[in-house]
Design a protein around this nucleic acid. Structure first.
Length: 209
DNA sequence: ACATTAAGTGATT
DNA sequence: AATCACTTAATGT
């Protein structure tokens, strides 16, 4: 069940054995919080199956979507903050029912020096997430809301591998840090242009979005 | 049948 | 683009 296939990275044998013995597989249901902002992270999660949504809460309880994690991905933020037991700056919630491989930070710290492939895996994930964050910043700074909404819908359907999204306008508004009314109007426009279909709590993405 | 929640819409800032 | 105020539609009890 646990192999390099599910990790999407070829680690050396010794490391794989250590991962096998130190790691725990946990299953989370859609909507379950994996870790919250402000909490100390003692595990590095790697997504085995499903999808995880990573958000950044702002001062007044609103949340801004940062990125999705899909199988094989890990979270760079946990790499950077848990190494020194800093509290998490972000929040991770299961998007779908998911399986996560949890690696205690007590052992992963040693792996950095022990296993070159682990080190490059760590650096690679940090790099990947960093690029994703740049993209997110780009969107906020330079894109209109309607463009952000479109990439939001695309990302989400890619993360869940489904053209039918189970989400309310309100939740989208939350993720994009805007109001529901605005989202409703933009979605209506997209529907009129034949890009999507709207239902209650569901949005169907059509191929030419 | 009624209450609750999601979505649609015009008007105002 | 945000907010308000209000309507309409869908869903749960």
């Amino acid at each position: 069940m646990l192999n390099s296939e599910s990790l999407k990275y070829d680690f050396e044998r010794g490391l794989l054995e250590e991962i096998e013995s130190a790691g725990k597989i946990i299953k989370v249901r859609a909507g379950e919080t994996i870790f919250d902002a402000g909490s100390l992270v003692r595990y590095i999660p790697i997504v085995i199956s499903g999808a995880v949504k990573v958000t950044r809460p702002d001062d007044d309880g609103k949340e801004l979507l940062l990125y999705y994690l899909t199988p094989g991905d890990s979270c760079a933020m946990t790499f950077t903050c848990c190494m020194r037991q800093f509290p998490s700056e972000i929040k991770a919630v299961a998007e779908d029912d998911s399986e996560l491989l949890m690696l205690p930070t007590s052992v992963t710290d040693d792996w950095i020096v022990k296993y070159p492939t682990w080190k490059s895996f760590a650096l690679q994930t940090i790099r990947d997430r960093f690029l994703e964050m740049l993209r997110a910043i780009d969107q906020i700074a330079f894109q209109n809301l309607d463009e952000r909404l479109i990439s939001y819908l695309k990302d989400k359907s890619k993360a869940t591998g489904n053209a039918l999204l189970n989400i309310s306008h309100e939740q989208i508004a939350n993720d994009l840090a805007t109001s529901r009314v605005v989202i409703s109007r933009l979605l209506k426009k997209l529907e009129n242009n034949g890009k999507i279909l709207l239902y209650r709590n569901q949005i169907k993405i059509l191929s030419d979005l």
